[in-house]
């Protein structure tokens, strides 16, 4: 009896182990199938990648492994050759990698914009101000501001605006969530605080939040996404062909069109604006 029990457990776990190990079916078969994409949380949390990646996989036969991390970490992974292709949104931080030829085939894909959101009562009175002036007003009122604090593209942008306003944000009113955009928005909502967010994530989560867009539209709030491949001459182990195919795919007219369409139906406005031709 006991031997039987032990046997059942054994068979159970072996079955589990064997289960699901079967391969996936796919159309063309490139040499190295696996392609690691390091990207920002916004492309994942907004659902854009869930639309684009299956299409890319079907078209080319590559198997994409998207790793959604902040732009800072994504770039760091690219710098070490740990990933094949990057989709990030911090041009100032990307530039040194391009200049050092760590990444090549650097192409602009799309943009959307950052917005400053906050409670509808707007205690610091920032509504309609330009971004730097709005940040100055928040600091002057010591109104609660939630920062990503995670070296992401959005965090880098936020710090750039503080620099523009000539303020070193510190104190009880300035808190760091250390989490992705979605989580940070919810912290801000719960605490009736201000935060800087990309428009796509905000629109995707609007229904749960009760935060309003207070500042939008100025030049420094532009959020530009670039795709780039890690230079195979520096890192022999990267999947150069797959990465090149992904870059070409992202800037192809057909995908540019689907990027422009994405979210229109659900949110009444697009979340990203294609601009590969620019």
């Amino acid at each position: 009896m006991r031997a039987l029990s032990a046997y059942i457990i054994l068979v159970f776990f072996i079955t589990l182990t064997a289960f699901g190990c079967g391969g996936k079916e796919s159309a063309p078969q490139p040499q190295v199938q696996e392609l690691i994409l390091a990207t920002t949380t916004s492309t994942m949390d907004s659902g854009l990648l869930d639309v684009l990646i299956p299409e890319f996989e079907k078209e080319t036969g590559y198997q994409v492994k998207p790793i959604a991390v902040g732009t800072g970490k994504a770039l760091a992974m690219g710098e070490k050759g740990e990933v094949d292709v990057l989709l990030t949104h911090a041009p100032a931080a990307e530039r040194p990698l391009v200049d050092a030829a760590i990444v090549i085939n650097y192409r602009r894909v799309m943009h959307n914009d950052f917005v400053v959101v906050g409670p509808p009562e707007d205690p610091a009175g920032i509504k309609g101000k330009p971004s730097a002036a709005a940040f100055t007003a928040i600091a002057a009122a010591k109104a609660l501001f939630i920062s990503r604090g995670d070296d992401s593209g959005t965090h880098k942008k936020e710090l750039a605006i503080w620099r523009e306003a000539g303020i070193e944000p510190a104190g009880k009113w300035y808190q760091e969530s250390g989490q992705g955009m979605g989580a940070t928005l919810r912290v801000a909502a719960e605490k009736s605080a201000y935060t800087l967010t990309d428009r796509a994530t905000y629109l995707a989560q609007q229904k749960n939040l009760g935060l309003e867009i207070l500042v939008e539209g100025d030049e420094s709030l532009l959020n530009i996404y670039h795709v780039m491949q890690v230079n195979p001459e520096k890192f022999a182990k990267v999947n150069a062909e797959g990465a090149k195919a992904f870059v070409e795919f992202m800037v192809s007219p057909q995908i540019q069109q689907s990027i422009g369409e994405f979210g229109k139906e659900k949110y009444g406005q697009p979340l990203f604006f294609p601009d590969a031709e620019k």
Partner: peptide
């Protein structure tokens, strides 16, 4: 695992992702 859809997404990592998407 990287929480890759259809490959390394398990119940715990899927839950984290859905929370960060706001799909409570």
């Amino acid at each position: 695992g990287g929480n890759i859809r259809g490959e390394t997404r398990v119940l715990t990592t899927a839950t984290v992702l859905e929370v960060s998407k706001g799909n409570f």
